[in-house]
Simulated scan of single mutants.
Amino acid sequence: METSRSVLIVPLLVVGGLAAGPAAAAAPVVPFDTSFVRHSHRRPVFQLDQRFSILNGKVVGTNGFKGGIEWRGRWRAGLGFYRLSGGVPTRTTQPPGTPPGTRDEVRFRYGVIYGEYVFIGNPRWELSTPLQLGIGGYYTKYLFPDGGVARTNSRILYLVEPSVAAHYRIFRWVGLGAGTGYRQVFASGEQPEDQISGYIFFARVKLFLGDLYKVVRGRQRLFSQDGLK
């Protein structure tokens, strides 16, 4: 009896495999949707943002940072602050009586509100269109040969910075990004003589604070690739 039962099982398994084979082969393959990264919840984001532009014919850096909130994986908004990393010789005429050998440098800093729209991406990378609206102060600093320092009154400037940006997430909690755009500066009064408007290009380090918090709490490995492959 045991022999006959064993013999009957083998054909049933073979027939079952043949029946399942064509059905499995016919199952459609659904491609991964890269239209945007989906997240059902809001989460904080933070960026260290190094921008470069041409000011008075010289490539200069502008150091800054941004922090805000992301929701639905598609929209971001927040606040930021930037300042010129070093002085740049101005195009203005030095005041009468200025000692020979005096150096003059333009200084520029500004705060922004920003919005960003992610139009394509997946958990590893994305392409987005940030827009920044800002208000800043612009002044000239004089460095005298005897070590003395003086500066002009700060003038208020307004700016708009549309750009295109991309980033690649190395680990779950950190990514590297780059982009390019244009800075348009407006003034309510006298226009600045220095060339502040112009093309910008930037590099950034992006921290994903929610995942970084999980790493600090030991809930996630430091170099985790979970969900990124």
Rank of each mutant, 00 (worst) to 15 (best):
H41R: 13
A23V: 14
T129K: 00
W71K: 05
R155Y: 07
V7E: 13
L79P: 04
A23H: 04
N56T: 03
Q132W: 00
G67C: 12
P31N: 09
G218F: 00
I120G: 11
G64F: 00
S6F: 01
A23C: 08
K66S: 06
K141L: 13
P123I: 01
Q184D: 08
Y182I: 01
T129S: 08
F223L: 15
W71M: 06
D194H: 02
E190H: 04
G111I: 02
G68D: 06
R103A: 15
Y114E: 04
Y199M: 14
I9K: 10
L79Q: 01
A27N: 11
L222S: 08
T180F: 03
I113A: 14
L207Y: 06
P130A: 02
K206G: 09
E190W: 03
A203R: 05
T98Q: 06
G210T: 09
G64Q: 03
Y117C: 03
G86R: 13
G21C: 10
G136E: 04
F171N: 14
G136S: 05
D146W: 00
Q225K: 14
P11F: 04
V118I: 09
L212W: 05
R219Q: 15
Q50W: 02
G177L: 02
F52L: 07
K141R: 11
Y117F: 11
Y142E: 04
E161M: 07
A23Q: 08
D49H: 12
R217H: 08
R151V: 02
D226G: 15
L18S: 09
D146G: 03
P145Q: 07
Y117G: 07
E116P: 04
G148C: 01
R169V: 12
T34N: 13
T3V: 09
S154W: 00
A24R: 14
F52C: 03
